[in-house]
Computed example of a mutant assay.
Amino acid sequence: MNSRNYGFTFESESVFSRIQQDVPQPDSSKLEDDFYVFVMGPYTAFDATYAYSDGDQLQSPFINDPLFEPESHITADERGSFKLALEDLCQAYRDRFGVHAFLATDVTIPTDAEASDDEEAMSVLDQSVAFAAVSDAVVFVFSDAGLTTGVGAEVGTILGEFHLRRGNQEPVRKPRERFRIFKTEGFSSASIDEIPSTFKIDTIEFETRADLVNKTQQFLSNIERNDPDRPLPVFTPYSSEDSN
């Protein structure tokens, strides 16, 4: 399972190799056979002081949330970072399950915005597609505390890239069973809410962080009970027949 190239490369090196080199490692005593979990969600926390003129008069400008903790997830510039909440979630997955759980920012491949003029780059969307393709499981996490602007459209684009839209006659590139959406009960977003019906990806609601971790374990266990390549492949690359 260490040769998941699938045609995704950066600077003549497989993207999967970069992931293996860069992402945080789980406790070796709990390592689960090189199982990779790509976690996606919003990186910015909702902040009332930016949305409302009187937001600074609130006791807290942030939404009470099971994942985002203002005392732990504030950056040096005093902005709320939902990304830090996702990093903590990845750490919980590594500690609890022994998997290689990671965010896109854990991989040191510069995006178009980050790269200098003479540096090779890979767009945010291309990175997300590649990371999702080579991972054993893809977990999307949403709650009211995170701003979903952009990430909702990105999720739909990724799923479409793998030909998962209902009615698409093209060969499916990655099984739907390897994707799962987790969201808080009150969360609602037009782009996210339509994913189950448009792409047939299951959505699971959670109440607390512990509840989310437990339900993620159920999701990962269902995948692990399958042979990693048959009948549930990690990814099916394009073949010469696809271009005919």
Rank of each mutant, 00 (worst) to 15 (best):
G152R: 04
I223T: 02
P231N: 08
V139H: 14
T198Q: 12
Q91P: 07
D95V: 04
E177F: 04
V172L: 10
T44L: 05
P171E: 14
R209G: 07
K174Y: 15
T75R: 12
F235G: 05
D33S: 03
S72T: 06
L220I: 00
V124K: 06
P233G: 02
P70R: 10
E87L: 00
V139P: 08
R18G: 08
P175G: 12
P228R: 09
L159C: 04
F62M: 07
T49K: 13
P196W: 14
E154N: 10
D202S: 13
T105H: 15
L67H: 12
T216F: 09
F62C: 03
Q218A: 01
D88T: 03
L220T: 05
D202F: 10
I109T: 09
R94K: 11
H73M: 06
I63Q: 05
D54M: 00
K30A: 05
Q218F: 09
S12L: 01
A130L: 02
A92R: 15
F35H: 07
E114T: 03
T198V: 05
F142C: 01
I109E: 14
E11M: 03
F235H: 15
S28D: 08
R209E: 15
V155C: 07
D112I: 00
E194T: 12
G152V: 00
Q218Y: 11
F162H: 14
D229P: 01
E224P: 05
H163I: 00
I158G: 06
P233W: 11
F235V: 02
S60Q: 01
F199D: 01
A115V: 05
L58V: 02
E119R: 12
S29E: 06
V151M: 02
K183I: 00
S29D: 09
F162Y: 14
S14Q: 10
I204E: 15
C90H: 04
D77T: 11
Y52S: 07
G98A: 00
E241H: 03
E69N: 11
T216P: 10
P66Q: 12
D22A: 02
